[in-house]
Design a binder for these strands. Structure first.
Length: 362
DNA sequence: CATTCGTGGTA
DNA sequence: TTACCAAGAAT
């Protein structure tokens, strides 16, 4: 007589063996490659990660190369991926592993969990995938999958739901193949048990799913409360001085990664106030007729991003963390995605202007 | 423990 | 268009 969790495990493992996606970090699995991929995949979709992962592994193929790489090199490889704190923690972890663990990822939960940027999920994922140890790994996918299978009514994103799913995942974890079991659950959440319109008809564990039997898939995880959207305007100021351009280091109150750069950017719910802030901070006159770029940028709370050209009033502005960057070396400075797109735009137009000048000289 | 951190995708 | 979600962690 096969029990529930045993049959469940076999069904989902069988499906995973047949249907898993062909992903770069699934060939030549090592402690290092798994570590990099797990960090990149935190709150980031597989499709987004793939090119970043390939570039990163090619450039920094092992613990030592990462530990001894310059901060700027590592940040450039992460540029555009978001959540930049992750890359700081990633490098720090590599340094610790090279220094204190002889260049090999430790195989004890507490030691892995202590590494910066490694939480409960990542520790479990690494131990189960790299060392095949029986630890569960519960991510957003697994929460959704289990909340449907067991019709867990706790509200979405609540800690009680998270706790409940960790408990269930521990109970369901098979002693054999825990790494593939964890990955199979996540893969199921990514391919079959998706947030909306789950594909239950092709689900390998539909017979084990209470939501499927009751037709309640859309009720789990239980829906959250609505929020109001307050638009916020962001403007970036392009301050030029001959062939140099002004960047500043991102520095905010939190202990955040300090080596990321940006064009001076100001936000306010009121558009005019945003411009006034910029003019006051930089002591410049912003020319609204010389709009270089108008771009819409929408997230949960922010709505527009505009780039303006500005003229000097008083050249003696600069506090620390502001720097004039020659246009030619602009590309070397790691920026966040939105700023990065502005940078590319500026470089592109700059090149076009240079070409025109060359033609005139001829 | 509720927020914040970036960006892209979906219905 | 908008709310919600994605291989979460730190504070």
């Amino acid at each position: 007589m096969i029990n529930f969790s045993d049959e469940f495990s076999k069904n989902i493992l069988n499906w995973f063996a047949r249907c898993q996606r062909n992903l770069p970090w699934r060939k030549d699995v090592s402690d290092y490659s798994s570590f990099i991929s797990e960090f990149m995949l935190q709150q980031t979709q597989v499709k987004t990660v793939i090119p970043y992962y390939n570039r990163f592994i090619e450039k920094l193929p092992n613990w030592k190369s990462l530990a001894f790489a310059s901060e700027k090199t590592v940040l450039k490889l992460w540029e555009g991926l978001g959540y930049y704190r992750r890359v700081k923690n990633l490098k720090k972890s590599a340094e610790i592993i090279v220094q204190h663990y002889n260049g090999k990822l430790p195989d004890q939960f507490d030691e892995i969990h202590k590494l910066p940027g490694v939480g409960h999920y990542t520790a479990g994922a690494l131990l189960s995938i790299v060392y095949k140890k029986p630890y569960p790994a519960v991510d957003g996918n697994v929460i959704r999958v289990f909340s449907r299978i067991f019709e867990i009514k706790n509200p979405a994103k609540s800690t009680s739901l998270t706790q409940e799913v960790w408990k269930r995942a521990s109970e369901m974890l098979p002693p054999y193949d825990p790494g593939n079991f964890n990955q199979a659950l996540m893969e199921l959440g990514a391919l079959i048990c998706i947030p909306k319109n789950p594909r239950c008809l092709v689900c390998p564990v539909q017979k084990h799913c209470q939501s499927f039997h009751h037709g309640t898939q859309s009720l789990f995880p239980s829906t959250t409360v609505k929020k109001k959207l307050v638009p916020t305007y962001m403007i970036s100021v392009l301050l030029k001085q001959s062939n140099r351009i002004l960047l500043r280091k991102i520095s905010n109150q939190a202990s955040w990664f300090q080596s990321l750069w940006e064009f001076p950017t100001y936000t306010d719910k009121n558009f005019k106030r945003a411009i006034a802030k910029a003019e006051k901070d930089l002591d410049v006159q912003i020319d609204r007729n010389e709009l270089l770029l108008l771009k819409f940028y929408i997230t949960k709370h922010k709505v527009t991003l505009k780039l303006f050209n500005a003229d000097f009033h008083n050249p003696v502005i600069f506090k620390k963390d502001y720097r004039w960057i020659p246009m030619k070396s602009l590309a070397q400075y790691p920026l966040a995605k939105a700023q990065n797109q502005i940078r590319d735009f500026i470089l592109h137009t700059f090149q076009k202007i240079q070409k025109k000048i060359l033609k005139r000289k001829k």
